[in-house]
Amino acid sequence: MKKKIGWLAIPFVVLVWTMVSAQYPSYVFPSPIDVFHEGIKQWGKGEIQLHILLSLKRLVLGFLISTCFAFLIGILAGASRTFRDFLMPLVTYFQATPPMAWAPLLIILLGLGDAPMIAVIIIASFFPIVINVIQGMNMIPESHIRAAKTLGAKGWKLTYYVYLPEIIPAAISGVYVGFAISWRSLVAAEMIGGNAGIGYFIAFNGQIGNASSVLLGILLIGFFALLMDYLLLKPIHKKFAGWASRETA
Results as ranks from 00 to 15, higher is better:
A148G: 12
Y176I: 12
N205T: 07
I140K: 05
G74Y: 04
F69V: 11
I5S: 10
I221D: 03
L64F: 10
L109G: 08
V35A: 00
F126Q: 03
I122Q: 01
I122V: 11
S55I: 07
I48F: 07
T97V: 13
W102P: 02
S55G: 02
G39M: 03
M139P: 06
I181H: 04
P98L: 04
C68R: 13
G111W: 04
L90N: 14
L164Y: 05
K239F: 13
K4L: 15
I52G: 04
L158P: 06
P30M: 03
I140R: 03
A153I: 09
M100K: 06
S143R: 13
L231S: 10
Q23W: 02
F86C: 05
I172S: 05
M228V: 09
S245V: 15
P235A: 05
V133K: 08
S143C: 08
T248K: 14
W102A: 10
G39Y: 00
V130Y: 01
A153M: 14
L215C: 02
Y163I: 12
G193R: 08
A189T: 05
H37P: 02
N132I: 11
N210F: 02
I134Q: 09
G174L: 07
Y176T: 08
A148S: 11
K149D: 09
F83K: 01
P11D: 01
F179W: 08
M19E: 00
A101R: 09
I129L: 10
Q23P: 01
G6A: 08
G174Y: 06
I65N: 04
M139S: 12
S31D: 04
P98T: 01
I172E: 04
F12H: 00
G178H: 07
I202E: 01
S55A: 03
L220H: 11
I10A: 00
H144L: 15
L231V: 09
A225T: 13
L219V: 08
Q135Y: 14
H37T: 09
I75Q: 06
L64K: 01
M137Q: 04
F12D: 00
A225E: 13
L233D: 03
K154F: 09
G111R: 06
L233I: 08
I236R: 02
P32L: 00
P128N: 06
A115P: 07
Q135R: 13
L90F: 14
G111P: 05
S173T: 15
A189S: 14
I192N: 08
M137R: 04
Q23F: 05
I118K: 05
